[in-house]
């Protein structure tokens, strides 16, 4: 199994022999996987293969599920984020997340972006921060004249970019995206994909997508997850996206990406 990548740069985050349980059910087994800095990595696989569970393990979002338990380690700057004494809120400040459905707060566009920074006690110029985050999220030109309007007044694609602006306003290092375009139309989807390409200059991005073409178009590395006979998700193959989509090593990967799975 290929689970390391040959990247010249640094590894932003890595899982070592990670298992995730929901009660007695092992949802994900023995994941060892490295994500290079300033690259876009996509997690793909059939429904139920645990790709979202894996993603959520990278910023301790699974802590919010009472029965969830993680074994093994997730190393971020050489520290296991699951070590005792690590504050999950602090983890999530460095490793942000964008969700499937845009979930702006019922507040103004400005406050949506400023919120995270305020919570973190940001002392600088808030107007500059909001503008910079909105510019990075490629939304500034569309909203600069109506910053006081509700976040809900925006279209779905704009709302998702607003959520991306909100995530980057707290200056994370890694952005996790859980099917960020599945609720969007094709044009809004392509805008987000373009945006992700820009964002990788400043952030490391890990994206879960059930859209294989999106992984092929928008990512540098792709990890293909599958399910074993006990329905536990495992990593089947991990490689550079170009290689995985033109010349996969494993037969199961081949079947999945050519649409002949199962």
């Amino acid at each position: 199994m290929t689970n390391t990548v040959h990247s010249n740069g640094h590894i932003a985050i890595q899982a070592n022999n990670m298992h995730v349980y929901y009660g007695n059910f092992r949802a994900v087994k023995d994941i060892t996987l490295q994500f290079p800095s300033h690259q876009i990595s996509a997690l793909i696989g059939p429904s139920g293969c645990g790709k979202s569970t894996v993603l959520r393990s990278f910023n301790r979002m699974n802590d919010l599920v009472a029965t969830a338990r993680v074994e093994g380690e997730v190393l971020y700057h050489n520290h296991n984020i699951y070590d005792a004494g690590v504050d999950p809120v602090e983890v999530r400040r460095h490793i942000g997340m964008v969700f499937q459905k845009p979930n702006p707060f019922p507040k103004s566009i400005y406050e949506n972006v400023a919120w995270g920074a305020r919570v973190n006690g940001f002392k600088g110029n808030m107007d500059d921060l909001v503008e910079s985050a909105l510019r990075q999220a490629a939304l500034w030109d569309e909203v600069k004249d109506k910053l006081d309007q509700s976040g809900y007044s925006l279209s779905g694609g704009q709302q998702q970019r607003l959520c991306i602006a909100r995530t980057i306003a707290v200056k994370p290092e890694i952005i996790l995206m859980d099917e960020p375009t599945s609720a969007l139309d094709p044009v809004a989807t392509l805008k987000i994909e373009e945006l992700i390409q820009e964002l990788k200059k400043s952030y490391t991005i890990i994206i879960v997508t059930h859209n294989m073409q999106q992984a092929a178009r928008a990512s540098d590395y792709t990890a293909f997850f599958n399910m074993d006979e006990d329905r536990a998700g495992y990593l089947e193959e991990y490689n550079e996206t170009n290689e995985l989509f033109t010349n996969p090593k494993n037969e199961l990967t081949e079947q999945y990406i050519t649409g002949r799975f199962g």
Binding site: A216, F245, T246, P248, E254, T258
Partner: peptide
Amino acid sequence: QQPTAKDLR
């Protein structure tokens, strides 16, 4: 058809 892998080759 968005062919990949063997199909694309």
